[in-house]
């Protein structure tokens, strides 16, 4: 198979785009997709600083690399969760990648904020991932806000986004459907959230990482119950396999035709008004935000354990 652009031997076949690309032209294609996403959805303004949420996985590292290559001012934040045998090597690998690529990386330890994830796991009854996700989102946003970043970028790709959309459609969840999209505008102490990779698939991001020599962390978190939406992703992949282009069409048509109908939908009784958390000052639907409540639970649990 030949490259659609230059006629050299192709390295990547993309049925969804009816195309094959050589390594050089594939990188051009990849950057172009990100550029289009950023432009069409007003993700990054002139001279705006962007914080990238860096997990250490392929999507976030690819995102750091490509935004930098496109000339944006980007810094990364890695949230160290304090999980034994997992958090240290992930942080180390992420640091090494950023150092080798001349990228600025900040590392925030949740343990220093009373929220080491193993302690959280012991202290709360809910599934740890729901709480861990909340903690990460809180600190990514807070760090961005407190350090003058205009936007927080995450590595969500087209597969993540279509699977989530499919899940939201199955439940016809108006509040989620009203706000799902590549850009969520900032408001008060919430910075703008952007997903510059939303036009690229998991395969495309993996190929990009391979071709750019991006050595990402591959082991799953020991607490992971498996990736989210695996079943939905499989269904959508089957659909895509039978009619290439369906995935993009489903998502883009939602943005154009579906989402406007759900704009401003209520999150439910008492959930729409946000207050400043009495402890941290960040937006919360109650007097104390979810993260500060978990911190209290962790402290109380520890105190109880030390008492016996």
């Amino acid at each position: 198979m030949k490259c659609k652009r230059c006629g050299e031997l192709a390295a990547v076949k993309l049925p969804s785009h009816h195309a094959g690309f050589c390594p050089t032209c594939f990188e051009g294609f990849f950057k172009k997709q990100v550029e289009t996403a950023v432009r069409r959805h007003g993700m990054i303004g002139r001279d705006e600083k962007v914080l990238v949420a860096v997990s250490g996985g392929k999507d976030s590292l690819a995102l750091m690399r490509v935004l930098t290559d496109l000339g944006h001012v980007v810094e990364g934040l890695h949230v160290h969760l304090g999980i034994p045998d997992s958090s240290d090597p992930v942080a180390e690998r992420t640091r090494a990648f950023c150092a080798a690529n001349g990228l600025t990386l900040h590392v925030l330890h949740t343990a220093e904020h009373g929220l080491a994830v193993p302690d959280v796991k012991d202290a709360v009854r809910r599934p740890v991932c729901a709480v861990c996700g909340k903690i990460k989102r809180h600190y990514f946003n807070r760090f961005a806000y407190e350090n003058g970043f205009a936007a927080l970028a995450t590595g969500h790709n087209l597969d993540d986004e279509t699977a989530r959309l499919f899940a939201n459609v199955l439940r016809w969840d108006p509040a989620y459907l009203g706000t799902q999209g590549p850009t969520l505008p900032g408001e008060g102490k919430f910075v703008r959230k952007i997903k510059p990779l939303y036009r690229l698939t998991e395969f495309e991001t993996a190929a990009y990482c391979f071709l750019k020599g991006i050595d990402h962390w591959k082991a799953a978190c020991p607490y992971s119950g498996g990736a989210s939406f695996t079943g939905h992703k499989k269904l959508i992949a089957d659909l895509e396999d039978r009619s290439p282009g369906q995935k993009t069409a489903f998502y883009e048509a939602f943005l154009a035709q579906g989402r406007p109908h759900f704009a401003g939908a209520s999150r439910g009784e008492g959930q729409d008004t946000l207050y400043a958390c009495a402890q941290c000052g960040f937006p919360s639907s109650g007097e104390v935000c979810g993260v500060c409540r978990v911190r209290e639970q962790v402290a109380a649990h520890k105190a109880r354990r030390e008492a016996v």
Binding site: E202, A219, G226, A227
Partner: peptide, 25 residues
């Protein structure tokens, strides 16, 4: 060290690596 499209030939003695792209959470 090279990515292969599905039409590429494989030859006796080839060492091939398959890397699944789905992230594991």
């Amino acid at each position: 060290g090279e990515l292969l499209t599905p039409d590429r030939h494989l030859w006796p003695g080839d060492q091939v690596t398959v890397r699944m792209v789905v992230s594991r959470g």
